[in-house]
């Protein structure tokens, strides 16, 4: 230690002597470090724009062979055929239906769970629940899909007396399990972030705990809860493996929850392997990717916007 101090002192003297030179060195060092950190900072931006550019470049080539109108509005997805048809409508419909189902299931459960964790549960239960929810988010999607094929598909088939359990509903239930942790965690944070005066004032005015939660806390945290739901939707729409394993993947526009559906993600995953590079089919899959990326980006932007508003309200 003493030695080190001595060294520092000598260094100090040294610095004084060559102050001018050192200053230039310092500012140069500062400049370099600043630039390096700047580069690190914009890495994610660069990566995102590169991915987007690549997707766009490859995907848009499709429209040399297929018209935009046919791609967006045709009801037939027959990529491997004598007369291939690339209509994305059934895939978008499948994705939206399964996501909607998943949200219908996971939002009531997720928000209820968040309210319970943040307002009602005793500290010990709270801790256990939080750990278990983290476990839920750690289950690999293939494992869920496997359970889905063997257990859930059978259950859906029997309880709705269908002939096949590979339905959009099966996919929705499994995907809702995967969206739940996101929804619970973020809603819980939103409710926790409310100033405790809200709670105290409401209770002091004679409201019951239930009335406080329903009339004061949930409305006050609504922006945060909506953001949680949006992020949950983003999670659900991007899910691939589970959905591919349990929904049957029939490329037609599903009319109920109890028929098979094919999502955009499953289509890309299932068909990418056998496409000839730079063929029409290959480009079509990239175009599907663009549509998917645009949808998730929009959802994330909305979530961001709402979350920002929530933060401002919180202050």
């Amino acid at each position: 230690m003493a030695n080190a101090q001595e060294m520092l002192v000598t260094q100090d003297k040294f610095t004084h002597r060559k102050n001018l030179k050192k200053d230039i060195k310092h500012s140069l060092g500062e400049y370099i470090i600043e630039k390096i950190i700047f580069c690190l900072g914009i890495t994610s931006v660069i990566i995102f724009s590169l991915i987007f550019l690549f997707l766009l470049r490859t995907g848009l080539t499709l429209f040399r062979d297929v018209s935009l109108k046919e791609f967006l509005f045709s009801k037939n997805w027959f990529p491997i055929s004598v007369n291939p048809q690339y209509g994305i409508l059934p895939l978008v419909a499948g994705s939206l239906l399964i996501t909607a189902g998943a949200i219908l299931i996971s939002v009531p459960i997720g928000v209820g769970c968040a309210i319970y964790i943040s307002e009602v549960a005793p500290p010990k239960t709270k801790m256990v629940l939080k750990v278990i929810i983290e476990f839920l988010s750690a289950i690999p999607s293939v494992v869920l899909g496997f359970l889905g094929i063997v257990v859930l598909a059978n259950w859906v088939r029997i309880s709705f007396s269908l002939s096949s359990g590979f339905t959009a509903l099966t996919g929705s239930i499994l995907v809702s399990l995967m969206a739940l942790p996101t929804i619970i965690t973020i809603s819980d944070d939103a409710i926790n972030a409310l100033p405790k005066e809200y709670r105290e004032a409401s209770l002091a005015l004679g409201a019951t705990k239930w009335e406080t939660i329903i009339n004061v806390l949930v409305p006050a945290a609504s922006s945060g809860i909506i953001a949680a739901i949006m992020l949950g939707i983003g999670r659900a729409i991007g899910e691939t493996m589970t959905v591919m394993m349990v929904t049957g993947n029939a490329a037609k526009i599903p009319d109920t929850f109890l028929t098979s559906a094919r999502t955009m993600t499953a289509t890309i995953a299932a068909e990418m392997g056998d496409t000839v590079r730079n063929g029409t089919h290959y480009h079509a899959l990239f175009a599907v990717g663009i549509v998917l990326l645009m949808m998730t980006t929009c959802i994330n932007l909305i979530a961001d916007f709402v979350l920002n508003r929530a933060r401002k309200e919180g202050r």
């Binding site: 037939n76 027959f78 598909a153 059978n154 096949s164 359990g165 299932a270």
Partner: peptide
Amino acid sequence: EEYAQHSMLMPSTGAIVEGLKQDVNG
């Protein structure tokens, strides 16, 4: 000719067998 649009496209032969095992009308 095209497969019917409502035909389910399973990711593996094992999945077809699993589906048929559960489905009397498959």
